[in-house]
Amino acid sequence: MEMTDRLNKNFLVQGWLVILLCLVFGGSLTAVQLTLSPVIEANKKNEILQIIPGLISEENSTAINKEATLPFTVSPFYVNSEKQGRHLSYAVFEAKDKDGNISGWAARASGQGYADKIELLLGLNPEAEKITGLFILEQKETPGLGNKISEIKWRDQFKGKKTDKAISAIKGKAVNANEIDAITGATISSKSVCRIINQMVGDIRPPLKMKLEESVHEKK
């Protein structure tokens, strides 16, 4: 009886500090989370929103335009598709100008590159028939070789390409309208980017065309 009493007292006496610390830290972490999470969410959103103007309008370069005022209102939505039992989902951003007409689309896709996942943002014109820009969001390709896919010079090759035929990366000099130059020594990275773009474009073209028709109908 006395022993169990002693044991009980011991546990509470021993553990009270840890329990107190748990409560103190639990409270402070919740406070930190509540104050900072809006800032963090805004950071995540802005990352993509800052890139979109450069992708949509063909006059801007595909460099990030931080000071640019957004002439478009951007609203995100998801395009889903089923393929071979896999459920795919693409985040698409719809850019509407001041009059409410659709100025273009920015679609995000990811896929396997040479070393790891590549995540990219593709700009399309309102009819989803021409590529207006490409931005690589995340890649871990070989530095000095594969990671040149992030360079503006290489990405600009995609501007103006039509989406009706698949784009392919050619090892030498690109000749046809649907070909681009692969990076020397980084053929697989270049081909992966093309593959990701082709797959996404094939999946989202019909839904985007439908959305354009709907919005034109709505305006009438």
Partner: peptide, 29 residues
């Protein structure tokens, strides 16, 4: 208490690391 000290250290350290992580995500994204 001697045999709970590692638990206490770990708790303190983990809490401060979480704070630093959130601060970095907010201000140096």
């Amino acid at each position: 208490k001697p045999h709970l000290r590692i638990v206490a250290f770990t708790l303190v350290i983990a809490a401060f690391v979480t704070i630093v992580d959130r601060l970095l995500a907010a201000y140096m994204y």
